[in-house]
Amino acid sequence: MKASEFVQMIEKRQGVKNSAPEEIAYKNGWINKTTLIASAERYGKSPYGQHLKNVADGKFIY
């Protein structure tokens, strides 16, 4: 439980998701933008889905 709270705190403070498998796959060229967007749509308007959409749109810079 403490680990979960720690990850949640880091994500909130930094405004980034920790370990988004679809994002990792996209950045490494294992999936294309179309597949990333399809994954984002499956999550709907959730913060995770929005994060994936931002990655696909190039709005997310490390």
Rank of each mutant, 00 (worst) to 15 (best):
M1Q: 10
K2A: 12
A3Y: 13
A3H: 08
A3G: 06
S4G: 14
S4F: 13
S4Q: 06
E5M: 08
E5K: 11
E5V: 13
F6S: 10
F6T: 09
F6K: 11
F6N: 05
F6C: 14
V7P: 02
Q8V: 07
Q8D: 08
Q8M: 08
Q8H: 10
M9Q: 14
M9R: 09
M9K: 15
I10G: 08
E11P: 07
E11Q: 15
E11L: 12
E11D: 13
E11S: 15
E11K: 13
E11M: 14
K12R: 11
K12P: 02
R13D: 09
R13Q: 13
G15N: 10
G15M: 04
V16P: 01
K17Y: 15
S19C: 07
S19G: 04
A20V: 11
P21L: 11
P21C: 07
E22F: 12
E22Q: 15
E22D: 06
E23L: 02
I24M: 13
I24D: 03
A25N: 05
Y26D: 10
Y26P: 04
Y26K: 08
Y26M: 08
Y26G: 05
Y26N: 04
K27G: 06
N28H: 08
N28R: 11
G29L: 08
G29K: 11
G29H: 13
W30H: 11
I31T: 03
N32H: 10
N32M: 07
N32T: 09
N32C: 14
T34N: 06
T34H: 10
T34F: 03
T34W: 00
T34P: 00
T35K: 13
T35M: 14
L36T: 03
L36P: 03
I37T: 07
A38G: 05
A38P: 02
A38D: 15
S39R: 09
S39T: 05
S39Y: 13
A40L: 01
A40N: 00
A40T: 00
A40K: 00
E41T: 04
E41L: 05
E41I: 02
R42T: 10
R42E: 10
R42M: 14
Y43S: 08
G44D: 03
G44Q: 04
K45P: 04
S46R: 03
S46C: 14
S46W: 00
S46H: 02
P47N: 13
P47R: 11
Y48A: 00
Y48N: 01
G49R: 01
G49Q: 01
Q50L: 06
Q50H: 03
Q50M: 06
Q50T: 11
H51T: 03
H51C: 06
L52I: 04
L52V: 04
L52Q: 02
K53Y: 07
K53T: 02
N54C: 04
N54F: 02
V55A: 04
V55L: 14
A56C: 12
A56E: 02
D57Y: 05
G58P: 01
K59H: 12
K59I: 01
F60K: 12
F60W: 07
F60L: 15
I61E: 12
I61P: 00
Y62A: 10
Y62P: 15
